[in-house]
Computed example of a mutant assay.
Amino acid sequence: MHKINLPSRSVKARALLITRLLAVACLLLFVQTAKANCTANMQQPLVSFGDVDLLNPGTLTTQATVTVTCTKSAARGTAQTFQVCLAADGGQGVADQFTPRYMCLDGASCSTENQFAYNMYIDAARSIIWGTIGRGTQYREMLNTSISFSSSEAARTTKSRELTVYAQLITPLSNVPPGRYTASFSGGSTALAFGTGSSCGSLRALRFPFTVSATVVKNCNVNKPNNIDFGTVNPGDTNLAGSTSLGVTCTSSTPYNIGLKPSNNHTAGAGEMLPVTPGGGNTDRIPYQLRSGSGANGTVWGNTATAAQTGNGVGGTGTGLQQNYNIYATVPSADYHYGDYQDTVTVQVNY
């Protein structure tokens, strides 16, 4: 029997060749099994209502865009379609609260006194609340879209779609203090599901964090008071008195101070009524005094009030509802020429 010993060098060469072939096979396998994947990203990432004036609300709606991107996993020659769903719960800290959702005052614990109601929807009519299948049986409608790849497109090709989130403040608007209100959708408050069939499948830990925000601005509205009319008086009449009522509405917790300024700019509220029809030599000016209390000895109401100081004005703190104040005026004497007299008083609310 003859034995033939192959040179060890040839064995090594074959082993090297086998290793190369295996490497090529693995590479081909990797190309053919590219991983299917979809992600989402909220642009900005913010759903912002901007500045909100609770006393004079304008547009109470806003919207934002979510971009969904999918990567084809099927090889060239095979078409592929992804069904994608985006879920959102009630927000961090109030995950089960959907009707309505709430923003809370920055830096403060959320309570009924400082929470601002809103909601998010998947339709432009703002009738279908954006929800999730992960929280109970209600509000399970999610943002959804489909992304399709043709058979001519290679694996690892990516495509994106933009989805719109619609949001609206809930009326009647809360009488909340001024400040910035936010709701955080971070951590597990958002999730994404996608499938290659007609269903999105199960939610996955694929997050697209964002924040909802609104800034409530402080403001005051003033109702124009009725005129103070002393009526028809005789030249010998003294100690005339009249009054009216002023209504002021300021945002909740907003301090304000009210000043009254006669047309002569007297800072202590001592004005003068001039003839309505000048001429005929009548140069009389009938003095009067504005007051916050009734009678000739009532407290003077002038115009030294500022946003920080009440001065000789009248101060208050807003509740979101109208607050009423009586304005009194006194005239020491009516011993002047016959005729009609008047003056204009400016109400200044400082806040």
Score class of each variant (00 low, 15 high):
Gly187His: 02
Ala183Ile: 00
Tyr166Thr: 02
Ser152Thr: 13
Arg140Val: 14
Leu163Gly: 09
Gly188Asp: 15
Tyr181Ser: 11
Leu173Cys: 09
Pro178Gln: 12
Glu153Lys: 00
Ser146Arg: 13
Leu163Gln: 13
Glu162Gly: 06
Glu162Trp: 00
Ile147Met: 07
Thr164Gly: 07
Gln168Asn: 12
Pro177Trp: 04
Pro172Ser: 07
Thr157Arg: 07
Pro172Met: 07
Lys159Val: 03
Thr158Met: 04
Arg161Cys: 00
Ala167Thr: 01
Phe149Met: 03
Lys159Glu: 07
Leu173Gly: 10
Arg140Trp: 03
Ala155Met: 07
Ser184His: 11
Ser174Tyr: 01
Gln138Phe: 06
Ser151Gly: 11
Ser148Asn: 09
Pro177Asn: 08
Phe149Ala: 02
Asn175Ala: 15
Arg161Pro: 00
Ser160His: 05
Glu153Asn: 03
Ser151His: 09
Thr157Ala: 06
Phe149His: 04
Val176Ser: 12
Pro172Ile: 09
Gln168Ala: 15
Gly179His: 03
Leu143Gly: 13
Ala167Lys: 03
Ser150Asn: 11
Ser152His: 04
Phe185Leu: 03
Pro178Asn: 11
Leu169Arg: 06
Thr171Asp: 05
Ser152Cys: 01
Phe185Thr: 01
Tyr166Ala: 04
Ala183Met: 05
Leu169Tyr: 06
Ser160Lys: 05
Asn144Lys: 15
Asn144Ser: 15
Ala154Phe: 11
Tyr181Pro: 09
Tyr139Asn: 15
Asn144Pro: 08
Val165Ala: 05
Ile170Thr: 15
Thr157His: 02
Ile170Gln: 14
Thr171Ser: 14
Ser151Glu: 12
Gln168Phe: 00
Gly188Ser: 15
Glu162Ala: 14
Met142Glu: 15
Thr145Lys: 11
Glu153Pro: 00
Glu153Phe: 00
Arg161Asn: 14
Pro172Val: 08
Ile170Asn: 13
Pro172Phe: 02
Ile147Tyr: 05
Gly188Trp: 05
Glu162His: 08
Val165Phe: 04
Thr171Val: 12
Pro177Tyr: 05
Leu143Thr: 10
Tyr139Leu: 05
Gln168Lys: 14
Arg156Lys: 12
Asn175Cys: 07
Asn175Trp: 06
Ser152Asp: 13
Gly179Cys: 10
Ile170Ala: 13
Ser184Val: 11
Ser160Met: 05
Ser160Gly: 06
Leu173Val: 07
Gly187Met: 00
Leu143Tyr: 03
Ile147Gly: 07
Gln138Asn: 13
Glu153Thr: 00
Thr158Asn: 02
Ala183Arg: 09
Ser152Gln: 11
Val165Tyr: 03
Lys159Cys: 02
Pro177Asp: 07
